[in-house]
Design a protein around this nucleic acid. Structure first.
Lengths: 342, 342
DNA sequence: TTGAAAGCGCTAACAG
DNA sequence: CTGTTAGCGCTTTCAA
């Protein structure tokens, strides 16, 4: 079954390629006769013609594709979606893009890999990068001539738009909440504390809240691994072993919290009776689990929607001022914190 | 910043476009001198040239892109990923595709929408469709000249490859397991029972198991809604209201089961003491929740990997026999079933 | 109101 | 060994 091209349509109708092209893209002040227009459309339907966007973009320099780059937690491992955060984000991105006439070119990335070429190779109109990246790769990104949006990155560079939240404030909020509820021995559990990463910021919020309340910092109450369910389980064991007798914990991600809950449960520790928990993200499953998690809510979907919008706006504009969007966060109270005030 | 083309490289080196093209795609029996080759590569590096794949595919008729079409549960709603099943599947697809040199063109779809054009427009090399679709759209799909893989669809059409599991057998397995553990009043909870849909098949497995054990079917024990957490909660209420005194339930999806567990918990029903549950999918969070779910395991990642492989194989072959892959399933025992045998 | 022709960036015969 | 040329499917002056 041969692919039908614009030439086939032209031949069918008995006009030139140009004419067909005109009616296909009918611009405001159109000059093609109603009759011809009708006959062209008819032939298009009949031959089941669809334009080749690749060919079109060769000329227009616009592909209507947005590149989405999602991190791989560990190289060689496939599950970027072990954290449902990415799923929710991607959903919003996909939906918004589609509504605006864009398609998504999705790719994960090995840490060592030049993930930028996909953008240049395919000529995407913009790139959305999720998560923090080593600056080596960012240098590459900077050389791209299409708008780039960094989601949840603390890289501040005039070349990039950014969308994020105030992670430090989130950490402070969570920890303060625990303190206000009478807790003073508070653990901090997170993924690796890379500088300029979100975990690191949340950590500094944790420290700030402790300081503010005059609580001495105890480094034995810091557990840092990876942001996934399994590490949550490890952290539970670790917690038992270190014997720091925490009554509460601020956990930097919901999935992590779920792992911790599961792990502690196995050790006979009850949530929230024995340990109160505030986590982070408000991924949909934080209300699904038992107990449901008191957590710092961020509007994940809005992040995705905004990212797409920023790309589209930037592509449409001639001026190139970069946008830096900080989304609001709130604490949502559920069942994982026990009030210890007298 | 002007995009650099093959012509720029050619000019820089002082050779023709063709020569540059040759060294770029260096075929087996190459004829370009070592010297020229070196100088071309040097210029490529220096100018930071990357080939325009869109232009290339115009000629080669190969885009190295795979279209992935994921269903939207409800039109106008964005969360195709409310079920983590899709996230896990997509991860595997993305990873496998990337390792094989393919990029993913991702799109959701409104039910009424012609989601096929994206494929033809962009000239993808193959299409992976997830979930069941109305035959109206399938007719369209059939007219595509690239390999199409249907994941989890009971549409059997010589035009499509399929990858799935034996859903009926899964339903039978789950239900029989409950029966073997002494249960006789067994509910069935699922999404809508569309003909030829996976839920419908699982349902027929449920019926078969009942029949096999000589247990009378009671239609009041069937709860069908949508495959999401919220409906699980509804089903819990519904169950209480109908008062059928079930001691067990077979639930056609893990997320649904989680909702049910949550809903029942709110009503004071304990799992598994008051109600035993076997669910379906073995999504990663089925081991994360409390209690962890005894469930029918299917290898979601393998489904994704196979789908990509089928596309690649089919694209490479001249012969076009369609493949029909049935993946194995197993029951994994966890904590959500109580043994009621005397 | 329409068509001819050039060209987007690239590859692939075919010459030389 | 390398260059010339044609052409992939499309848009867009420019002319008619």
């Amino acid at each position: 079954m041969k692919r039908v091209s614009i030439m086939d349509v032209a031949r069918e109708v008995g006009v030139s390629k140009a004419t067909v092209s005109y009616v296909l893209n009918h611009h405001p002040g159109e000059t093609i006769s109603a009759d011809t227009t009708a006959r062209v459309w008819d032939a298009v339907k009949r031959l089941n013609y669809v334009p080749n966007l690749n060919a079109r973009s060769l000329i227009s320099r616009k592909t209507n594709m947005i590149g989405v780059i999602i991190p791989q937690t560990e190289p060689g491992k496939e599950f970027m979606f072990a954290n449902p955060f990415y799923g929710e984000l991607l959903s919003a991105i996909e939906y918004t893009a589609r509504k605006s006439g864009y398609h998504l070119l999705l790719t994960g990335t090995e840490t060592d890999q030049s993930y930028i070429n996909i953008a240049r190779n395919r000529g995407v109109d913009g790139i959305i990068v999720v998560g923090t990246y080593p600056s080596k790769n960012l240098a590459e990104l900077r050389s791209i001539d299409v708008p780039v949006v960094l989601i949840d990155s603390y890289v501040r560079d005039p070349a990039f738009h950014t969308i994020g939240i105030d992670d430090k404030e989130g950490g402070r909020l969570a920890t303060s909440y625990l303190i206000e509820h009478g807790h003073r021995k508070i653990a901090f559990v997170s993924g690796s504390l890379r500088e300029h990463g979100v975990n690191d910021k949340r950590y500094s919020g944790y420290l700030a809240a402790l300081a503010q309340a005059g609580i001495a910092f105890n480094e034995k109450r810091v557990y840092a691994g990876t942001v996934d369910f399994d590490y949550g389980i490890c952290a539970a064991k670790e917690m038992a072993e270190r014997g720091q007798k925490e009554t509460a914990a601020f956990i930097a991600a919901d999935v992590l919290a779920m792992g911790l809950v599961k792990g502690l449960h196995g050790l006979g520790v009850r949530i929230p009776q024995d340990l109160s928990i505030v986590s982070f993200d408000d991924v949909y499953l934080s209300q699904m689990c038992e107990p449901s998690l008191t957590t710092i809510r961020q509007d994940i979907s809005a992040k995705g929607r905004n990212a797409v919008q920023v790309i589209i706006d930037a592509a449409a504009q001639t001026e190139h001022k970069k946008r830096e969007i900080i989304m609001p966060i709130t604490l949502v109270e559920r069942e994982s914190v026990e009030d210890r005030r007298e």
